[in-house]
Nucleic acid binder design. Sequence first.
DNA 1: GTGCGTCCTCACGTCGGGTGAGGTGCAAGC
DNA 2: GCTTGCACCTCACCCGACGTGAGGACGCAC
Lengths: 253, 253
Amino acid sequence: MSYSVGQVAGFAGVTVRTLHHYDEIGLLVPGGRSHAGHRRYDDADLDRLQQILFYRELGFPLEEVAALLDDPKADPRAQLRRQHELLTARIERLQQMAAAVEHAMEARRMGINLTPEEKFEVFGDKDPEAHAEEAERRWGGTETYEESQRRAATYTKDDWKRMQAEVASWGERYDALMAAGEPPTGEAAIAMAEEHRQHITKWFYECTYEIHQGLAETYVSDERFKEFYDSMRPGLAEHLREAITANAARHTS
Amino acid sequence: MSYSVGQVAGFAGVTVRTLHHYDEIGLLVPGGRSHAGHRRYDDADLDRLQQILFYRELGFPLEEVAALLDDPKADPRAQLRRQHELLTARIERLQQMAAAVEHAMEARRMGINLTPEEKFEVFGDKDPEAHAEEAERRWGGTETYEESQRRAATYTKDDWKRMQAEVASWGERYDALMAAGEPPTGEAAIAMAEEHRQHITKWFYECTYEIHQGLAETYVSDERFKEFYDSMRPGLAEHLREAITANAARHTS
DNA sequence: GTGCGTCCTCACGTCGGGTGAGGTGCAAGC
DNA sequence: GCTTGCACCTCACCCGACGTGAGGACGCAC
């Protein structure tokens, strides 16, 4: 069984030119040539191509791909293990990005102004310095709630107002609920947690129960988020977190 | 608050040159310039840069990134929704790739010879034609079990033999177990399922309970995989699937 | 023999930047 | 006051991973 460039290009989903290129740079030299000089790929070549495409997809430069594949002390078992690790690492990375996106949007929803460093946190730039100076800018600056609101206002003003009204209404009702001594695991609190989740879904993005729980954690762990909720009533942040957790538990069981 | 190229490059984790480039092509033009002609980026620029990097990371060409960001009918809400969708789609894709890698390795373990089309299945090339002709090659070909074994033999011969011995031993014991009338949910069968899982982990890759269950499904749904197991004893494939499921359930509860 | 389809080999174009070369503006140290 | 250093500027060529013709060879079909 041997295949022409066209056939291989066909089922591998690459162009003929790409195969030519790989031949040129010695990354994938076909097992043989026909008498007319046409490239003939055998099954081993296909296996190799599959591996090449795998690593390419994950963004490796071709030179490194060659190194990985020609590594003599990497048998198929090691290859597989590596591929599997790469994939799971990648997935984790994306999940972190998703979490960061959710986080960023929550900040926006509350009119919290992230520092530049925080904005780029997603991209994994663990550079924990310039932190004193940063706090200066953050708390000493003159950027107000109002101002950051203005910046977020690519919404129509009406939309924004209506959303704020919903938030306010929800806040008052949650305040009342706590005043009445309702526990976080009670029906009333759980209903409010669910309303909170649906508010996010309505105005921002599909907020799953899982995501919601993630957000709940930051409401108590991040000072600014906590302040947002505690300003409605002291202790609200924690109360809400527990209600959200209870609500999530109910729906994932 | 405004920042120089160097500062921005710093916390965004890109080079100064990149920022120059983005300015040149009009993708990110700084809000202003200092009297000396130095670029000054303001907070809105940072937000935009963050978005740019997000889409770039997902592989969009810069021109498209510009189109996405300058789309007038995409408010922050729509952006967020889109980003979130892109991420979850990407994650799903990677998970499929991971599953395909697992699948490929199982095939190798059993000496099953995938058709070229199957080898590239991962890369999503749904082209369900040329299927009759394909079956010809697949079943009519002369490639034997032996041959495909040979190709997979980048293992040391010893390793391969020892692995095969383990498989054989396991098969005999599973055969006996079924002959004795053990149910798939019984202790003995579950122990065999667990041994099966650990065999894969030992020789190939970290096989989680979740992955194991995925494999179990293909053992009954893919004719060739089914044949591999049923040749040890008719009905073994299905028996094993249920045992694996029971074993997985025990460990994830 | 004349299409046609697929293959071949140059060889230049494109995209997203990297990497100097050579020059300017400004603060600090001598 | 002068120079040294640093961060910035523009101009311009270089690179990887192909895309995109141009111009030609093969084989089969009519």
